[in-house]
Amino acid sequence: MKVTIGAFLGGALFGVGLAIAGMTQPAKIVGFFDFFGSWDPSLAFVMVGAILVYTPVYRWAIRTWQHPVWAPAFSLPTRSDIDGRLVLGSAIFGVGWGLGGYCPGPAFTSVGARSQEALTFGLAMLIGVGIYQVFMRMREKRNGGAVDPQAAAMIDG
């Protein structure tokens, strides 16, 4: 029970942070990439602010903590090679991000805020996630096991 409450509070704090940061307004995302119009650098401040907290906590935790409070071990990405899947997938994501002005976090929390645009975007996004994951599972079944577990599992986040 405490485990799910912790995840709930983490998601809620993340959502409030996104709203305060202005990241739930697609115009601020598009504005960050609008170098030839009215450029809005806010997104860079959000990322720097988040990394400023995250990096020292991460480095301290992996050095000194035996395990997380509610889990037997840290589940952290292990791969370090650059592959085509990483670059191509991210490139496709970037097209959608620039087109819709939402990435996954802001889309989920804006659906909670009853935004029609976020709902349309979010349903299509979930269908996209589902198509990929179901396709990977079918491939795994056909091959009698994980063909490329690192391709199917979300290894970076």
Binding site: G89, S90, A91, I92, F93, G94, V95, G96, W97, L99, G100, G101, Y102, C103, P104, A107, T120, F121, G122, L123, A124, M125, L126, I127, G128, V129, G130, I131, Y132
Partner: peptide, 8 residues
């Protein structure tokens, strides 16, 4: 856009 973000 949503499909691209989901699959990408």
């Amino acid at each position: 856009a949503g499909l691209a973000v989901g699959i990408g």
